[in-house]
Design a protein around this nucleic acid. Sequence first.
DNA 1: GCTTAAATTGCAAACGTTTGCGGTAAATTT
DNA 2: AAATTTACCGCAAACGTTTGCAATTTAAGC
Lengths: 330, 330
Amino acid sequence: MTNTTLKLLAQQLQLSISTVSRALKDHPDISTATKEKVHALANSLDYEPNAYAIQLRTQSSKIFGVIVPAIANLFYDSFIAAIEEESRKNGYALMILQSSNNPENELNNLKIFRQNRVSGVFACLSAHTQHLEVYEKMSERDIPVVFFDIVPKENKYTKVRMADERCAIIAAENIIQRGSKRVLALFGDPALSISQKRKQAFQQFMEKYAPKTHCTYVHTNSSVEAEAAFNKHYEKTQRFDTVFAMTDEILIGVMKSIQANNIKVPKEIGVISISNGFIPSLYHPNISYVETSGYELGKLAFVQMLANIKGGKTLSELTVDARFVEGGSM
Amino acid sequence: MTNTTLKLLAQQLQLSISTVSRALKDHPDISTATKEKVHALANSLDYEPNAYAIQLRTQSSKIFGVIVPAIANLFYDSFIAAIEEESRKNGYALMILQSSNNPENELNNLKIFRQNRVSGVFACLSAHTQHLEVYEKMSERDIPVVFFDIVPKENKYTKVRMADERCAIIAAENIIQRGSKRVLALFGDPALSISQKRKQAFQQFMEKYAPKTHCTYVHTNSSVEAEAAFNKHYEKTQRFDTVFAMTDEILIGVMKSIQANNIKVPKEIGVISISNGFIPSLYHPNISYVETSGYELGKLAFVQMLANIKGGKTLSELTVDARFVEGGSM
DNA sequence: GCTTAAATTGCAAACGTTTGCGGTAAATTT
DNA sequence: AAATTTACCGCAAACGTTTGCAATTTAAGC
């Protein structure tokens, strides 16, 4: 069965295509009588406008492109969920591609976006990417690009990201407030700017406002490493009373060890992490965490996108603020 | 800056549009000399074919639609990741929409898919949906639909799903092997066929091969409900020695309670679940589970889709097989 | 050198819309 | 009753491609 078109409707109704078109969109030129007839037939024939013809004619596609390193990720999937919701509300659809942290894929994806004349793209740079010219080209063609999470350094781009330093500081504040004497602070890959930022902010804050608190800083690259690191330091006689996990991944390792050793939280050890909240809610008691919400970031990114589309270029870097979520682990 | 088109290239090269078009796709009619010239200019001008014009002309869109209840979901995100990979390999892009388990959204999404003349749709029914006519209509219009995970009962559709019965039976086998006397078996929404299937298979198997084992069957709709159900039954004097969780969601609730009550696993209670593996790995000891891989399901779904597109209708129900993964909880 | 075949290239229609402009008939004003 | 306005509606071009066919140029055969 072939698709219903304006032409078909026009033929059956003995009207011109233009009249049918206008009737369907409630144009004042068309009489109520014909409007009704047209709508009736359109409904019974399940007419759906051909988005491709429309875009070809109007030169605007109502589709956003999204590039993430991976969809299967606690952070990015909620980011995607957020912009999907907003997009739907605003009549846009989403085209989602994953780069798998591979610059080549990223390039190919961008190409697909251009071929589909997307109205804008949300991009998360893949880890070791420095080929921003492609993005430049999109901007030249008036396709706004909103970078998120992993963003370029230059400030000629529109970007949104988490307030990394704030997160670390909020965590530090709560640790101090708890009256901790010895802290084990676990951070991620030291090569990533996110690890650097968080550690630096955390360390500075602790040294300034709680110089007497003894902090041990360790970098780990996986859950397993985090678990090992925790175990190693837990053996010591002078035990720490608080552990800080920079990411979910690290928290998972820590909690494995805590469960294995049947350590009482928060009595024996306080736990605090930075997270979007899902992992911390898995444990009893819930782990207290500083919230970095992919969902919020998505909402923010969308606002930026809309601003870019409507009001020309809005070059700025916005961050979504962090807040402390009390679990029962501190 | 305006987009490069065939027309523009043709003008600059003093050639006809058709020649340029053919040159670009390496048509044998065109001489090598002009091909080179065309390619050179196209590259320098960053020509990208307009997907909309192509689709309008060729009536095929190279886009698949995907409907999931939620993107932010451990199972669906890996499913999506899988079909995204395959799609890219095959020159397709993905349009992903989430239903949020709301039939109305589902309907709207389908509409968007039809407007975009997708080449096919991967659909996971939202929980309480019985309006399959929309899907019928897509099929009538030769848009193949591959249902996954939550699929319609009728067997006139193409569907892929987990081998639900097998999963349940494998779980039951292991429970019997453990020598359990009293089992608490937690299932999901009783309205969902997935819950029904798993429960029925489980129950039948237990009754047949371990008639003396006492089983309590409970349906819950969320982690919180599962936690409550577990607590309620745990109060009893005649305690169960094994708990079976049909999904990650349920497992999470169970484990919250287990942690809260400081129950020793597997000594006091054995735990087994059905999962893709991530959640079970979060606990110590790792929870034993029957593996259901969203990733595998995605790959399978894609094969089905391709078969449908190429070889006409392939009505069948394929399942991806399950296997037991030993944790330390049994 | 003339005919014929082969190698190139161009013409034009079509895909399904939108929209500026012009046209006709009815309604209103003089 | 003629003139003008108003209410409807249709024509036709354009968006960027693809593709069957015709047209042109070049090479080949004799």
